[in-house]
Amino acid sequence: MAKAKKSKFGQDNLVGVLMSLPGLILLTLFVIVPFITAIYLSFFNVDFNMVQGPQFWGLEQYRRILVDPITSPIFYKALMNNMTFALIVVPAQTGLAVLLAVMLNAKLKGIAFFRTFFFMPVVFPMSLVAIIWALMFSRDSMGMLNGLLNLFSFGYIQPIDWLGDPNIALLSIALLSIWAGVGFQMVIVLAGLQEIPAELYEAASLDRANFWQRFWNVTVPGLRNTLIFVIIITTIFSLRLFDQVFILTKGGPIDATQTVMYQAVTSAFIEGNVGRASAITVIFVLIIIAITLLQRLVLRQNREVK
């Protein structure tokens, strides 16, 4: 048996191992080892400069993050913000991406021109996007967005404190994130649309189906896999939220834009609490895995029902 198995690998064995070695080493060093380090450190009281050396704490970091009445509320606040952000961004961005893709999936002259503009923000680094929007969001009547709203509402809408009002700040962050990210999703959806056989639309037209009927009965089922992918990556993206918050609001006002990643980074870099930061990292990964599995499960079930 053993011999047979060996011959199954044959001459490829050595080459296969050699070719995968560089990638494997790098992945191990820079992904797996750090992640194991995170799990390991999360059981310790480790301060940033290791002045007093790590003390084994068992699950104390997790208790403080998840259970302790004094220290846990801030984590749940951050998690809630991530979830709220996802609840805003996932439907809005996916919906907008589908809408734009459907509008672009027409045989009209100059479509490529419009596509260019919708996609353009994708090549902007998030730090630059955040800075441009910092100015768009300027709070008084001098702000660009407030100026535009004032103009189009004929002076009815008063200046909004986009980033300073705790009820609005997260929404503002969502707005700029959608602007920056929708082009990416749109292109994916557009590719999905183009895979839907034209005959299906033609058949629907012959059945005198109107636009909405065609949309719901042909487009949406045809896009199912694409939409699953888009929803999953947008959800994960929502959980990763950091750059915009760091640049624009630093978690404020009144923790309205605290996020899990922002908590992890400030725990390490402001409070010097590496143990806590590591524990948050581990929880963060567990949440991502859970959400990915959950979404796949739910969507797969739906598929089976159909």
Binding site: T37, Y40, L41, F44, M50, G53, P54, Q55, F56
Partner: peptide
């Protein structure tokens, strides 16, 4: 144990 672990890091 902690010291050893510290060494590992």
């Amino acid at each position: 144990v902690c010291k050893q672990k510290n060494h590992i890091i």
